[in-house]
């Protein structure tokens, strides 16, 4: 099952601490390689914490990533969140539309459960 979502990468405390503790350490790597999904979306798509999904942007950029249910009502259904890092950046296009800034929040993506 493939569904459309909007992805918002952003900062988290754990990601920030991981920058100081070392980018190759476990805490940082785990934080930037986990996609948060609204609990209702997890249920509808039959996802459990730790399941892997494929996220694809409109321009075809793609990552495979583990999911976890977002805390409480932090994410509305239809919205995904991932901490800034290597994976989130892989989904950005090189184009900045004359601003110097690639569009890196509010990305249209599809998400598909990997078996």
């Amino acid at each position: 099952m493939t569904e459309r979502f909007i992805l918002i990468p952003g900062r988290t405390s754990k990601q920030g601490c991981g920058v100081s503790e070392g980018k190759f350490d476990r805490v940082y790597q785990q934080e930037i390689t986990t996609l948060q999904v609204a609990p209702a979306d997890m249920k509808r798509m039959g996802l459990a914490n730790g399941d892997r999904v494929r996220v694809t942007t409109e321009s075809g950029r793609q990552i495979d990533v583990a999911v976890t249910a977002a805390t409480g009502d932090e994410l509305p259904p239809g919205l995904l969140f991932i901490a800034y890092g290597d994976l989130s950046s892989r989904l950005m296009d090189g184009e900045t539309h004359g601003s110097g800034m690639p569009t890196s929040k509010g990305l249209d993506v599809t998400m598909e459960k990997l078996s």
Binding site: R61, G85, D86, S89, R90, M92, D93, G94, P102
Partner: peptide, 8 residues
């Protein structure tokens, strides 16, 4: 780690 793939 933080730039787009073409830039990297």
């Amino acid at each position: 780690a933080n730039f787009s793939q073409p830039a990297r």
